[in-house]
Amino acid sequence: MKSTLQNYKNIFSIIKNKKYLTLFIITLIFTALSYYYILSSSAEGILDFGKYYIYFDIVSSIIISFLISLLVTLTVYSYKIKVKNNNKFAVASIITTILPGSLCCTSVIPSILALIGFSTSFLVGNTGKIQSIFSVYGPLFIVVGAVIGWIGLTQITKDISAGCNIVKNAVNDECCESNYENKN
């Protein structure tokens, strides 16, 4: 618990640094707007929340973009201080959250099935079985994407904190990089 709190304090220290704060804010705005466009244009959540789906889309956009922006910023930071990190979580989170909007309710899946060689009757009888997964369970994809993002965030903060402790002596409240630069 104590180390988790310290990890989150380290995130805050890193984000306080002007250049990382700028990166975080720019990424946040860009991803929030992108996600809001993707989710609202495909009416994500309307089957579950009815006319309140737009609130689900707004909240989801904010949460996902916050997590991804933080992940991207920390990944850049970890490369800067040459700490090994696993950045697959950011990619996995992005892919999971954009799947419903891109694979449902478009001609992508039927086109791919036709390209592979399936017949018209197969398309008519089965395209729904595939696309409906992304439509009916769309909100679940968003939640899973957010969870993956959060796991990635937890992992990268551990990696950075461990890296900082190896690179130099205890960080306390200061940004690891600023200490590293001061030492050099």
Partner: peptide, 12 residues
Amino acid sequence: VTWCSSCAEGNS
């Protein structure tokens, strides 16, 4: 189709 979110939105 009656499981499609854009169709639901269209009705609304």
